[in-house]
Write a protein that binds this DNA or RNA. Structure first.
Lengths: 185, 185
DNA sequence: GTCCGCATGTAAGTAGTTACATGATTCA
DNA sequence: TGAATCATGTAACTACTTACATGCGGAC
């Protein structure tokens, strides 16, 4: 989904400012399947206001820039609905720098491999804690709560695999030194 | 990793043509953490040849365009090594259209939700079969085999979750009709 | 007194995608 | 006969990232 559709998705859950939309890409329930920085969000909101997909209300604040709160319109909902209808979601293409590095574990130092794995383990543990908290907010089952569960399941599997294979990764590290590369030539 | 580094990674496993590199993004062991189309691969290879990161050998073929086989150089290996050294891999940001759609399951028809879930279940099953085959090619443990195992673990977890929650997703579908949106305003 | 959070935006750049262009072979 | 695979590449476009620009308030 492009940045416009993604913003509309956030606005479906309630009116929000550009700043708040970005926060929900960073922390909230959208954080594990959507992304976008200020540089894409603000222009998208401006354009969608012109196109009538959202309305914008300025809330004056003292000693702060006016907060522009955006709300999705009927046309916006139609746009979102159409985007989802026309989409047959393909594979989630993951561009993973971690997996790329681990793939070449044999050519790298055990220290570096340990460092990147430990960092990721810590990340997943922290993220899973956050998600568990987030889950307590749902009293009924909904698409939102089920998607959160999906995220938890995948993160847990990733964490488990890394914990279980940490030593194995470190053991293969350094097995192939650059010269091996030449031997293969 | 950018397209250049990713191509160098493929070439670390052996000389290949642009066409073959792309295939390994689509099918091979790189397919679940790297991507790139012809439009990015060919220019990248041309540029890297100029920069000395790869060498290019034309293999004449009858009745086909000459196959250009690229091979990584020492400078190429250094480039790859540096890219990995300088990188502290952050979170694997997933832009998932499936999760986006499922998040809004309540607003969509049960039929559509069933269709996208079933398509993804079939995809994971097929992919897991392929990956299991791929795994038989490894006789020793290496970064490559461990990363394959990682991919299998994550895909399996995704598949399991979808299978376990297929009915739940379908049950919430259609619970919120667009009017609810207005009620929230 | 410095950094983080709130709050908005623009401008320049890059990287990647999509579509086009060409053409033989092979399989159903 | 039509589609898929092999095989290369370019041109136009889009979409996003990064850096810049501004500035107050509050916490440490």
């Amino acid at each position: 989904m492009d940045i416009k559709t993604t913003c509309l998705g956030v606005l479906m859950l309630g009116a929000a400012s550009g700043y708040e939309i970005r926060k929900s890409f960073e922390e909230g329930p959208f954080s594990h399947f959507a992304e976008g920085g200020f540089g894409s969000i603000y222009p998208a909101l401006t354009k969608m206001t012109q196109e009538g997909l959202v309305t914008c209300t300025a809330h004056q604040q003292e000693k702060r820039p006016a907060k522009k709160v955006y709300q999705i319109t009927d046309a916006g909902w139609t746009h979102l609905e159409t985007a989802m209808r026309d989409k047959i979601p393909g594979e989630d293409k993951i561009k993973s720098d971690l997996l790329f590095m681990l793939f070449f574990a044999d050519w790298q130092s055990p220290e570096r491999i340990a460092r990147v794995i430990d960092a990721r383990i810590a990340f997943y543990q922290q993220k899973l804690d956050e998600m568990a908290d987030c889950g307590t907010q749902f009293d009924t089952i909904s698409g939102r709560s089920l998607v959160l569960g999906y995220g938890i399941a995948v993160f847990q599997a990733s964490l488990d695999y890394l914990v279980a294979n940490r030593e194995a990764f470190i053991e293969v590290a350094g097995q192939a030194q650059p010269p091996l590369l030449h031997a293969a030539e």
